[in-house]
Structure formats: C-alpha cells, structure tokens
C-alpha cells in the first residue's frame, strides 16, 4: 500500500523533471567559454552575454518583442475586458456561443491562423508590416483575456453594484469605484498573459515578420535552423528570465495552473 504511493510519487517527480529539464539546462549552457553550446558548459564566462550587446539584430529583436507584446496586451485587454463585461453582465442571447466565438482563435492551429492571415493581409498591404504583426498578435491574445476576465467576473456579486447605486452612485461611478477595482486582478492577469503569449509566439509571427522586423523568438528560431551558436543560449536565458518574472507576478495574482484549467482547490 505504502510502496504504491511511493511509486506514484517517484513517477510524478520524474515527469516534473522531464517537463522542466529543457529549461534547466539552458541557463548553465549560456555561460560556456567554448564557441559551441553544450550542457554541462565548458568553462565559465560571460562572453556570450557581452557578445549579445554587440549584435544589433538581437537588441532590435528584443525591443520589437517587448514593444509588440505591450501593444498586443493593451489592445486585447481593452477589447477583451469590454467583451467579457458585456457577456457577464447582460442577458445577451446565445451567450455560450458568443464566448466560444470570441475564444475560437485558441482552437484553430496557430500555423493555419498564420497562413490565413498572411494570405488575407497580402492584398491589403499589411503582410510583413508592424500593423499586420500587431493585428495577428491581438487575435491570439484576445481569447486569454476573455477567459481570465470572465473567470474574474464569475464570482462577482452584482449586489455590490446595487449597493453602490442605492448609496447614490450613478452607473459611471459604480463602474470606476466598485466594478473596475474588483476585477482589476483579473484584468492585470489577462494583460500579463497576453503579453507572454505575444512575447513567446513563434508560429504566427513567422508568417508576419519581415527581414526588417523580427522578434526575439524568431531570431532564436532562425539561429537554431542555421548555425548553433552559444549566443542562442544567452538569448534564451534572457527570455527565461523575463518569463519567470512575469510568471511570479501571475502566480501571485491568479495562480498559473488555474489559467490553464487546473484549479487550485
């Protein structure tokens, strides 16, 4: 009886290590002093980090990644929050279908979405432009915002709005002083999630980038396809670092597991 439990625990630990190991090996590999990447690293140096600063394409890609992730997060949060509020608060007919429609970009493969948008954008002169890139990223971010804000609203006590109204607050005051502060964590989580989704994206981005405009994951992707160079390890470590910071905030706000459907309780 006890041994069964131990077996289960051991298997669970192995799986968790399996999930984490590719991320664990990247960081030490970035400190190698050799000019090929390996784990464990050969020697120790910061040369691949200093090298990073000498490569303008990486710096530019980094700036692009952050810039577009911020913009995509902003727009998807605005659209998504308004939409989620409408779905949660009003008796709109066909609510369930509406929610499925607004989260449907999640159920279409990103590859197919990328193909569709590239073909659609080309005659509109949007292919390979920053506008096209941003629009595509907003599409993939919106479902997460909708889902998170709807979750945030699911336990919302609408009597709070009534209580405020009875105390003399008009609908605008009710929204700013009561509704918005209470769903703010959900909105922030939605925004962080959208940021990470955009920041990490490769598949859709591949169809949207141009030689003049590339993002960090795209740089890593093409580096990996061409020549393996330890600089990939240092860039990757940088991406991990940024992701981890946002994950910590997200965990504090919402619980990362919850976002993907596994509830905490």
């Amino acid at each position: 009886m006890k041994s069964l439990g131990k077996l289960r625990m051991a298997a669970a630990v192995i799986t968790i290590i399996y999930i984490l190991i590719p991320l664990i090996v990247v960081i030490p590999a970035s400190f190698t002093s050799a000019n090929y990447p390996s784990f464990p690293a050969e020697g120790f140096s910061f040369q691949w980090y200093t090298e990073l600063l000498n490569r303008p394409e990486f710096v530019e890609a980094m700036v692009n990644s952050v810039k577009f992730a911020l913009l995509a997060a902003f727009f998807s949060v605005v659209f998504g929050t308004l939409g989620a509020l409408a779905i949660a608060k009003y008796d709109i007919p066909g609510k369930a279908y509406l929610t499925s429609l607004l989260t449907s970009p999640l159920s279409v493969p990103q590859l197919v979405l990328g193909i569709a948008l590239l073909i659609y954008f080309t005659p509109m002169m949007l292919a390979g432009t920053s506008t096209g890139f941003l629009l595509a990223h907003i599409v993939i971010c919106i479902p997460y915002v909708i889902r998170l804000v709807l979750t945030g609203l699911s336990g919302f006590d609408y009597n709070l709005e009534r209580a405020a109204a009875i105390l003399g607050a008009n609908p605008v005051v009710v929204f700013w002083k009561v509704t918005l502060p209470l769903i703010r964590p959900a909105i922030i989580s939605g925004g962080l999630f959208a940021f990470l989704t955009s920041f990490d994206n490769v598949t859709v981005s591949l169809f949207m980038v141009s030689p003049d405009m590339r993002t960090l994951p795209i740089e890593i992707f093409s580096q990996m396809q061409d020549a393996y160079n330890p600089i990939v390890a240092s860039v990757s470590s940088l991406v991990i670092f940024i992701s981890v910071i946002l994950i910590i905030i997200l965990e504090k706000l919402q619980g990362v597991g919850k976002v993907f459907g596994g509830s905490h309780s």
Binding site: D157, N159, L160, R162, A163, A164, I166, L167, V178, L182
Partner: peptide, 10 residues
C-alpha cells in the same frame, strides 16, 4: 438605504 442578504460590503 439597503441591506442585502450577501452583505455586499465593498
């Protein structure tokens, strides 16, 4: 003035 079953304190 109104008091609700769910307290509804902000």
């Amino acid at each position: 003035g109104m008091v609700f079953q769910t307290y509804s304190l902000f």
